[in-house]
Amino acid sequence: MQLNWKGVIPAATTKLKDDGSLDHDAIKAGLIRLIENGVSGVVMMGMVGENAQLTPEEKRTVLKIAVETVAGRVPVISGLAETNTAAAVQFAKDAQAIGVQGLMVFPGLTYKSDVRETIAFYKTVAQASKLSILLYNNPRGYGVDLTPDVVAELLKEPTIEALKEESYDTTRVTDLISRFGDRLAVICGVDDLVLESVALGVKCWVSGMANAVPKESVELMNLATAGDFEKARQLYRLLIDLYHLDTHVKLVQYIKLAENITAGYSENVKAPRLKLEGEERQKIVDIVEKTLANLRALAK
């Protein structure tokens, strides 16, 4: 299955049991729910999927569950988040063998690489498999910025097809599209910049909070890409407080709590993360419940 980098591709949460182990049945059910609500693909084990907290065996198990459950209905993309190049290369090879269609590649974790090192890392990973590569650009989170000049060098690798843009600078979207055209798919990676990004030409969105509201997120993306910005703005304004939660350091806990409220899945997270408590938890509950009430009112 070839990736066309269009529509909503949720960065799926990794469902866990109370003891922290993988909840196979919940992972399967969550993927089926996303597909039934019209998503264009799924990213397993992105930041939202707690990639860095999973063991090597757990990572590969999650991919096997996803490939089996999705069964070719939409593309499966795997996050690749490793601390060294050798482990990244091995993961890319294993992911290809398991049967995913693409890799969303983080920069090497725990080390802030310079430009030469960053280019060498991404090129080496790209050459390790035949999978489509989605570059992950989150300089706030990882201290490495894939600027247009860096991207120009990386695009010499034919399997590098797309970039998840999360610099929070919308001018970067236009800079990338104007420079690389159809050679690079620029993907919105920030939930509360999606409408702005589509207005600038983006056609695909890797979303965290789409786990909680997949149907509404797909509707928003469809309205925006169809050019119906009047209706899209109306829906976006109802969702924006929820989408703002995707940009916080505790986005995993926030998204899992929202998903618990909307779909009943567990809030369990991998330590050192902890489930929300007290006033902090209630604040998120209030935002989710207000959003759902507003959506119900809109539907009347």
Rank of each mutant, 00 (worst) to 15 (best):
E219R: 15
V218N: 07
G278F: 08
L276H: 07
A226C: 01
N260M: 12
K270P: 04
V249E: 12
E280I: 10
K215T: 10
E230I: 10
A271M: 13
Y265L: 13
L242I: 08
A232E: 08
D246A: 14
V249K: 11
Y243E: 08
Y243T: 01
P272D: 05
L235V: 07
V269H: 09
G278R: 12
K250P: 00
S217E: 03
Q234C: 09
R233H: 13
N268E: 15
E267M: 14
R273Q: 13
L239S: 04
E279D: 15
L238P: 00
L220K: 02
Q282M: 13
T262N: 10
L276D: 06
A271L: 14
Y254P: 01
L223W: 01
Q234M: 12
K270Y: 04
R273Y: 13
M221I: 01
H244P: 00
L220A: 01
S217P: 01
L251E: 04
Y254D: 06
R237Y: 11
I261G: 06
L251M: 15
L274P: 00
K270M: 12
E267A: 10
G278M: 09
L245H: 00
K275S: 12
D228W: 01
L239G: 02
Q234W: 02
L220Y: 01
L235T: 07
E230T: 12
H248D: 14
K256I: 02
Y236Q: 15
Q234V: 13
E230F: 04
V218E: 09
T225H: 03
R273E: 09
R233C: 11
E279V: 15
R237G: 11
Q253C: 11
G278K: 12
H244R: 14
E279S: 14
D246L: 00
